[in-house]
């Protein structure tokens, strides 16, 4: 037997500050930027925070020296998403905020986030959501694994961590099969909404979060030039964006015993049968 590695785990959980999906979301037709005024911690990143905190709790808890660092790249208000993650149990936060980052595509976002993870240093595990609810690309986690040279364990339906071997294993769905995958740390783990039930912070957790630190990080701290990121550093340029005409409610009928027939009449009228 090789000796057990009992060093505390250093986990970065990536949280994105996104427009609340419960409200109408708008892209400005002139600037082509998403209106971010009503933003919150992405609901899919709550599963990532829960996975990271639960993993620490399964390994002796924060008293054992493990760390969960909530990290975000976003404007000033994005610190609110870090605060929410701290209330859910993360131990500290880092916030990458720089005007030059506006307009970054995924290739550049992953470059900046990888640099942020390296800036934190000695990270064993990066945990992310399955998708951001604004960009909806689901590719940043894989790109981070590529850039950091970490194992890629993405779209996890569940997460198992073996503290003795420091191996992670997950189940992942494909169209025709479900795979069980395993890899040693360091790794990038993205979790689906099947993986857990995110906790609601209680009063004690909210008070405790106020004492936790959030470190502000700039591009210069990461050694990245302004031209290498944002719209300037991205290959993708958005040319236009238009709201699809809102769907309008059509005919609504009450079933008085013949609605199934009316449904088929409607299909015939629309030439759908």
């Amino acid at each position: 037997m090789t000796e057990e590695n009992t060093a505390p785990l250093k986990i970065v959980v990536l949280v994105k500050h996104v427009p609340d999906v419960q409200f109408d979301r708008h892209i400005d037709s002139a600037s082509l930027r998403l209106d971010r005024s009503e933003s919150v911690l992405s609901e899919l990143d709550e599963y990532a925070v829960e996975a990271a905190v639960a993993l620490v709790e399964s390994q002796g808890g924060f008293a054992a020296g493990h760390e969960v660092i909530a990290a975000t790249m976003g404007a000033k208000s994005a610190s609110n998403s870090i605060k929410k993650a701290l209330q859910m149990g993360a131990s500290s936060g880092v916030h990458l905020n720089d005007e030059a980052l506006i307009g970054s595509d995924t290739v550049v976002t992953s470059k900046a986030l990888a640099a942020l993870v390296e800036h934190v240093g000695d990270v064993d595990l990066v945990v992310t959501g399955m998708s951001s609810t604004d960009a909806e690309t689901s590719v940043v986690p894989a790109q981070l694994a590529e850039r950091l040279n970490f194992a890629q364990l993405t779209h996890a339906l569940n997460v198992d961590f073996d503290g003795a071997t420091r191996e992670l294993s997950i189940r992942r769905d494909h169209a025709d099969r479900t795979l069980t995958l395993a890899a040693a740390l360091p790794a990038v783990l993205s979790v689906t909404d099947q993986a857990n039930d995110p906790r609601y912070p209680n009063f004690k957790a909210i008070m405790a979060a106020k004492k936790k630190s959030i470190t502000e990080v700039s591009l210069a701290d990461l050694g990245l030039a302004a031209q290498a990121v944002g719209a300037a550093g991205s290959h993708i340029t958005v040319l236009n964006a238009e709201a699809r005409p809102a769907r309008e409610a059509g005919t609504i009928i009450n079933d008085s015993g013949q609605a199934g027939i009316a449904l088929v009449d409607f299909l015939a009228e629309q030439k759908l049968i």
């Binding site: 979301r25 892209i27 909806e136 993708i236 340029t237 040319l239 964006a241 238009e242 709201a243």
Partner: peptide, 14 residues
């Protein structure tokens, strides 16, 4: 974009 509520066009510069 935004779960199909918007349609956008984009181009790659290199």
């Amino acid at each position: 974009e935004l779960a199909g509520s918007y349609s956008a066009q984009a181009q790659a510069s290199g």
